[in-house]
Write a protein that binds this DNA or RNA. Structure first.
Length: 486
RNA sequence: GCACCGUUCGUCUAGCGGUUAGGACACCGCCCUUUCACGGCGGCAGCACGGGUUCGAUUCCCGUACGGUGUACCA
């Protein structure tokens, strides 16, 4: 049987970084096995629905390089893939359970339920629907139940959980897991608004969509017995389950928006490459070899196995993410992000720059910045005349030695006919040797004159990229302002 | 409270009965050097605890502690 997995988010807002990892693992698993990756939108909670959230999910996954074979967008043989469009299916299935005695009608109001829980907590017992005393099909009797239904009373449908039995399954990540049905609540299957709860919809859809492996977050582990019970109530075999470890805050609590960035778009806006985020997040809880950190999507697909997924939650280490971004900054083909640099240049009102030139600047400065967006500010002098210079740096490097040697160096540059790194280096070296000077004596002053800053790439490389005219223009401008100010 | 899951350097992890417990990030030194980076070299630092099983436990089993998740007509 071929592998079929699904990523089943609910459209309640932005995509969480943990959801991204779940989506990724599903994708990697599907691709590794040559199977099918499905996107299903779980929008059965009308009160939490957020307009545009579904589109955000799709575009975020696309950005990350996660593709779906079947989805709301693409369709597929098991559609529709939006649960709100499948309510009739759930209703029919609830009826099956009602008829075979595995589900029942209940009429309690939320106030009554709250009271029940309060009583139970006061008595020190676990809150759980008590079907022997609440208002439902069993306590009311079939006749009364029918009468109320005919009258149009509000009702919900609950799962009839066996009083005492063992519910066990084999989790692909955790191994044997078992629960006692005593601790399982008579879960509501159909809400009074006619929509199913997650539990019913999830089980019915996974079955109907022929899902073979349910790969989801660990927060679902405690409700898995309900799902197992549902499968058997329908007389179905359950799929394989794999419960992923959680992504944690620094304090080891479940990663939440209260403590920093947790939404994918936030990382995207900061300038992280999708490759960085995907690579990083993949390694939070999974590790194929441990002797390397950088993986392409294809390499991850090739080596992904659920057996290698960890059991314990992983703290999201922002520092390491940044390191990885720097690595990608250094190895990613500049062609892929020239446009990002151009965007930030446009924001500064600079538009007359060629792609080719931007690429050269990227290569010149990529080791010194983390994001493409920083190129335009870190290397502003590459695109426009410096507006001033670093005063502190000037005081430090503008020595008497420098002041007397620099005019001669400038002349050398002015007369240079080959304005390349090796040629300039040779010429200047010659001058230094003749005058018993070292690079130390003039390079920083030169840097000051050309960039106005104390940090940057090698000066000869910088000059080569800048070109003779732009270099001399900068030198003249700042030289004047320095000597004039003196 | 109850149920379940988990526990190797600060963090991500390798390890699947015998290892000087390995790697990466971070941190600290040193080197390279025209600045800053990059890079190179080195250092710091870990098997939660207690019982078993075994010739031998980080590794297997049982407790304890600690942590997390769940406990909704949310997903």
């Amino acid at each position: 049987m071929s592998v079929r997995v699904r990523f089943a988010p609910s459209p309640t807002g932005f995509v969480h970084i943990g959801s991204l990892r779940t989506a990724l693992y599903n994708y990697l698993f599907a691709k590794h096995h040559g199977g099918t990756n499905i996107l299903r939108i779980e929008d059965t909670d009308r009160t939490r629905f957020v307009e545009g959230a579904e589109e955000e999910i799709i575009s975020t996954c696309r950005w990350a390089g996660i593709e779906f074979d079947e989805s709301t967008e693409k369709g597929g043989k098991c559609g529709p893939y939006r649960q709100s469009e499948r309510t009739e299916i759930y209703r029919q299935h609830a009826t099956i359970l009602l008829e075979n005695g595995n589900a029942y009608y209940a009429f309690d109001t939320s106030e009554e339920l709250d009271k029940m829980r309060e009583r139970q907590q006061a008595a020190g017992i676990a809150p759980k629907y008590d079907r022997s005393i609440m208002r439902n099909q069993y306590t009311l009797g079939d006749e009364e139940t029918k009468r109320m239904l005919d009258e149009g009373a509000e009702f919900c449908i609950r799962l009839k959980v066996p009083l005492s039995s063992e519910i066990a399954f084999n989790d692909m990540i955790r191994g044997h897991v078992s629960f006692s049905s005593r601790d399982v609540d008579d879960q509501i299957l159909m809400k009074s608004d006619g929509f199913p709860t997650y539990h019913l919809a999830n089980v019915v859809d996974d079955r109907l969509m022929e899902i073979t492996h349910v790969i989801r977050g660990e927060e679902w582990l405690p409700s898995t017995p309900k799902h197992i019970l549902l499968y058997s109530a329908f007389g179905w075999d359950a799929p394989q389950f794999a419960h992923l470890p959680l992504l944690l805050n620094e304090d080891r609590s479940k990663m939440s928006k209260r403590k920093g960035d947790v939404f994918v778009y936030q990382f995207r806006e900061k300038g992280f490459f999708p490759e960085t985020l995907v690579n990083f997040v993949a390694l939070l809880g999974w590790n194929p070899t441990a002797d390397r950190e950088m993986f392409t999507m294809q390499e991850m697909i090739d080596s992904f196995t659920l057996e290698k997924v960890n059991k314990a939650g992983a703290v999201f280490d922002y520092k390491k993410l940044e390191w990885m971004q720097s690595e990608y900054m250094k190895k990613t083909d500049p062609d892929k992000f020239v446009y990002m640099v151009r965007n930030s240049l446009n924001e500064k009102g600079i538009s007359e720059v060629s792609d080719d030139y931007i690429k050269k600047v990227i290569i010149l400065l990529r080791e010194r910045v983390q994001f493409p967006t920083q190129i335009a500010s870190f290397g502003d002098y590459m695109f426009e005349l410096p507006k001033g210079y670093d005063e502190e740096f000037k005081n430090k490097v503008w020595t008497e030695k420098a002041a007397s040697a620099i005019p001669m160096v400038i002349e050398i540059l002015r007369n240079a006919d080959e304005f390349t790194q090796p040629a300039l280096h040779a010429k200047v070296q010659e001058f230094l040797t003749e005058n018993k000077l070292g690079f130390k004596d003039i390079m920083n002053p030169l840097r000051l004159l050309i960039t106005g800053k104390s940090v940057g790439a090698g000066m000869f490389e910088t000059m080569e990229v800048l070109g003779k005219d732009a270099t001399l223009q900068r030198i003249d401008t700042i030289f004047q302002s320095i000597t004039g100010a003196k």
